[in-house]
Design a protein around this nucleic acid. Structure first.
Lengths: 230, 230
DNA sequence: CTTGCTCCTCACGTAACGTGAGGTTCTAAG
DNA sequence: CTTAGAACCTCACGTTACGTGAGGAGCAAG
């Protein structure tokens, strides 16, 4: 059988057969003019290659397997399954996240959408898994409505405080005190009083100044609020 | 900020930053001597790129997204989730199979192992999903023990029939008739009387002669058995 | 002898960078 | 002012499993 025929019968492309020949995976005989000739043995070999390929093994590994057939099949499969499991887990998490974003930012603009993803990325970086779980629970407790309110209130609150700061108002001034109180309340609502979460939050805003800036925060403002809280 | 510093602060490799520059994803300014200078805007941009990358989008798509920000975020995410789900499903099936092979061929040699995989591949090709499900159920019904018995009996039975054929025994001979009866029983046990499955089985052995040969079958033997069964 | 089909061997392209090679610029110390 | 070493630059090849021509021969039929 020449390549074309084998290709038609197996559905494998000619190029792929050439490729396998180059890699030494399936090595057909040749006519004097150089045309490849596949016999029974080569077809069997090809089937084996295809079978292993279907299971997701890289070609290089397949070649080694078929070369020295004394490998530990069990161990091999276990390793492979392990690899797959990890990939699957990662992808499932990704999926869950994407859907969470899609669901939550139901009618969000592109800008808001990217923002949301950025926030998620940052959270991943600064919170432990347990903390993220805790936060997810708290969010569920509050419900859509409340969350949206909080999200809309924060920028307003930050803007108000910034205004007072720029105006040079004394942090002890009752107006600032009222804002600071609300500030505390919102943070408490978010952290649920968890000291670890509060710390991670602080690390996040200190460690990612450009992220903080996007939220309207900066170190000076932080300091100002801190004074008012004391 | 020069590349080295940005690289340290973000944990992204210098090469990657160069790469993103080449692709026009993050385009820093340059000093007169050509060194890259990243400012606030570029860092923000980088964060966005990284966020989208983390969600598994290809860089090319990310560039388009960030270029024309009027895209439909919902649609985009849905498409992406769809892609992911398909990948996950495929990988899970793979995993399940690998484990099935590993569990079933618990102490198999490398040869048997490859054989098993080949059989699976062939089954995939010739049976529909429903038929495969049905077969899986039947296998569970029988249990490990019975299956192993069947698997050991088949080669013996095939060998016996082949012997009679080569000896030229009349298909109507009682000895051949007894073998043919057992043959029928085994096939019935396998197909569970499902006509579709029996047909697929026949297609498999007719369509994959080299597979059939590995199992010890060939067209002449088939014909002989057929005569005996009539 | 030529047409048309099949075959051959390069060899580049893909995604997202890693990893040098070889050369320039910056920075701090002598 | 010079010089060593760090940091920067631009190529450019390697990775995986092939796809996709380019350009040139072999092979059967008219």
């Amino acid at each position: 059988m020449k390549v074309g025929e084998l290709a038609k019968r197996t559905g494998i492309s000619i190029r792929t057969l050439h490729h396998y020949d180059e890699l030494g995976l399936v090595s057909p005989h040749r006519t004097v003019s150089g045309h490849r000739l596949y016999g029974r043995d080569e077809v069997v070999r090809l089937q084996q290659v295809l079978s292993l390929r279907q299971l997701g093994f890289p070609l290089e590994e397949i070649r080694e397997l078929l070369a020295r057939r004394d490998f530990d099949a069990q161990q091999l499969v276990r390793n492979h399954v392990e690899r797959l499991r990890r990939q699957i887990a990662a992808q499932q998490e990704l999926c869950a996240r994407l859907e969470a974003v899609a669901a939550h930012y139901h009618s969000a603009s592109a800008e808001e959408f990217i923002q949301a993803i950025e926030v998620m990325t940052m959270f991943d970086k600064y919170y432990t898994k347990e903390q993220l779980d805790t936060l997810a629970q708290r969010r569920e407790m509050f419900g859509e409505e409340k969350l949206r309110e909080f999200q809309e209130e924060w920028p307003r609150l930050i803007a108000s405080v910034r205004e007072e700061m720029q105006r040079g108002t004394d942090p002890k001034d009752p107006k600032v005190q009222a804002l600071a109180k609300r500030w505390m309340e919102l943070i408490e609502a978010f952290t649920g009083g968890d000291a670890g979460i509060r710390e991670s939050l602080q690390n996040l805003y200190q460690g990612e100044p450009q992220f903080a800036a996007q939220q309207g925060m900066d170190p000076r403002l932080s300091e100002y609020v801190q004074k008012a809280l004391d």
